[in-house]
Write a protein that binds this DNA or RNA. Sequence first.
DNA 1: TGGTCATTTGGCTAAACTTGCAAATAGCAG
DNA 2: CTGCTATTTGCAAGTTTAGCCAAATGACCA
Lengths: 108, 108
Amino acid sequence: MDAKTQARYEARARIIKAMAHPTRLFIVDELARNGERCVCKLTEMIGADMSTVSRHLATLKSAGIVEDERRGSQIYYHLRIRCVLDFFACVESVMKCNAKDQQRLLVS
Amino acid sequence: MDAKTQARYEARARIIKAMAHPTRLFIVDELARNGERCVCKLTEMIGADMSTVSRHLATLKSAGIVEDERRGSQIYYHLRIRCVLDFFACVESVMKCNAKDQQRLLVS
DNA sequence: TGGTCATTTGGCTAAACTTGCAAATAGCAG
DNA sequence: CTGCTATTTGCAAGTTTAGCCAAATGACCA
């Protein structure tokens, strides 16, 4: 694999890696559902330290998945691109397929 | 976030995490393009130790993204679910969006 | 049975990631 | 300016991941 190809896959992996964490996945899902949320609300929903949530948001932001916007004393985050939701649909079908195989193993 | 919700996001994250590596992304792309490949061929294309490639394949397999099949002395891997390709399309649009912002910064 | 080829696994090290606490920042109200 | 609230950053500890080499496994052939 030449350097250019390598670099292209690394760039893609960076974006996917930004989604590869349960908390960040929750955030994306929540932003998709609700449009936007401030850090404090997300922190409350997630139940981790606010500094931890802030770092997850920074990860998503630097990947270009979310954007932030200050309003008053709070900072609101929202999705930058809707299609990240396609991830969920596909992940669900992988899970469903896995479950089916599981089932088949139990039965046989 | 209650335990059940937490578990659901963890399960999803496991699948996405399996794709979150340049080498594994390359493998998925190659399998999508070519249908199937044996470990030796992938190893040759990637240019890493075969043991490393084998572990990446094991990661993809345990997430339910690929399946393996022995034929003769070689083991062939193929995608189990096509929709993982949607990931690429979305990742591309995130990258395109990022590039556009980059551009805007340079111009202004 | 012994040998060979393809693949996986064990062991180890270095690097990356996650997290909470405490301290720093930033905007806002008085 | 001072205090207050929301958010981010520095730091340290613990956990996970990636990679290579060497050894083990598995299928196949002579």
